[in-house]
């Protein structure tokens, strides 16, 4: 099964917004949740998610599988994910090209709660492909893999990030989740051109797009952007997003806001802004064909 999310604008669901969403979710094409927040047995989280799921398409987005880790994907966590996907039948499941757990021999795993970077080498490419295979066969569905926001590079890397992601998609059959904010954050941090990154990226594999806000600091070499999900989407990211949609056509697009949450109306406005770009993209494609 592949992603069945509609090519509309969606919003990350936060429990604080539940009542406001039930009152008015106009213009929101789908909701996305972090899988790990719904791995308890029952209670309010599941009652809310079931209500959201009943009325909207749903994307489940994992943050804890550690697909870029050195060891195989944790079987217990994969089992929790499988049960969650069985229960809610989401339209899409996605995870990150990153690692977040570190297994210590004899001590089990420890979870670091951050999306940590990896060098891109033939070895890590094989590992990531093995892990994506593990996930897709356990869940019985195609997953989407998201490009990370990074703050450092590695001398060991021998494969460009875009080629690495394209090759994972080719070998495993997974789709890709394009986080346009992450592209802008990483390229700014590394002094490279986000348009060149996007030109090299296999847009035809994109099953979902993420837009989020970042924070900025200034270092002697230039800005250091941090993927905070605590601010509105920045103007240069909107511009890149519009270019992506003009090239690729409409794709399901999520506005993420995880920290310092605004009122629901602010988030809904961000989604409407994405929705307007998607609608223009659909019209220009229709004219072109």
């Amino acid at each position: 099964m592949s992603s069945t999310l509609p090519s509309l604008a969606g919003v990350g669901f936060k429990p604080q917004h539940f009542a406001a969403i039930r009152a008015d979710a106009a213009g929101v094409g789908f909701f996305e949740v972090h899988a790990e927040n719904y791995m308890g047995a029952g209670g309010l989280p599941h009652a809310q998610l079931a209500a959201i799921r009943a009325d909207h398409p749903l994307s489940i987005h994992g943050v804890g599988l550690s697909i870029g880790g050195a060891r195989g994907v944790d079987a217990d966590h994969l089992d929790r994910l499988r049960r969650l996907c069985d229960r809610y039948q989401p339209d899409s499941f996605s995870e990150h090209l990153a690692w977040s757990s570190h297994g210590v021999e004899g001590l089990g795993a420890e979870y670091l709660n951050d999306l940590l970077p990896l060098p891109y080498t033939e070895e890590t490419l094989r590992l990531v492909c093995d892990h994506v295979d593990q996930v897709q066969s356990a869940l019985g569905r195609r997953m989407l893999l998201e490009n990370p926001a990074t703050y450092l590079c590695f001398e060991q890397s021998t494969i460009p990030e875009t080629a690495f992601l394209a090759e994972v998609a080719r070998r495993t059959g997974c789709g890709l989740l394009l986080d346009v904010n992450n592209v802008f954050v990483s390229c700014t941090n590394h002094g490279t051109d986000p348009r060149a990154w996007l030109a090299a990226f296999p847009l035809h594999q994109v099953g979902e797009i993420h837009l989020g806000g970042h924070d900025a600091e200034v270092l002697p070499s230039g800005p250091l952007l941090i993927d905070s999900h605590a601010a509105p989407v920045a103007d240069p990211v909107w511009a890149l997003y519009a270019e992506v949609i003009a090239r690729a056509g409409p794709r399901p697009t999520l506005v993420e806001w995880d920290n310092d949450l605004p009122d629901w109306s602010v988030l809904a406005d961000e989604a409407r802004r994405a929705g307007a770009i998607l609608a223009r993209g659909g019209q220009s494609l229709a004219r072109a064909s």
């Binding site: 050195a70 690692w99 990896l118 703050y151 590079c153 590695f154 001398e155 270092l219 002697p220």
Partner: peptide, 28 residues
């Protein structure tokens, strides 16, 4: 020889305040 397990272990040790792993690069 696999390098990734060693990389992850070094990175994690550095997160805990140990020395930085080899091979990290930045614009400066």
């Amino acid at each position: 020889m696999p390098a990734h397990p060693e990389f992850v272990a070094q990175f994690d040790a550095a997160l805990r305040g140990g020395g930085l792993p080899l091979g990290l690069t930045a614009r400066r």
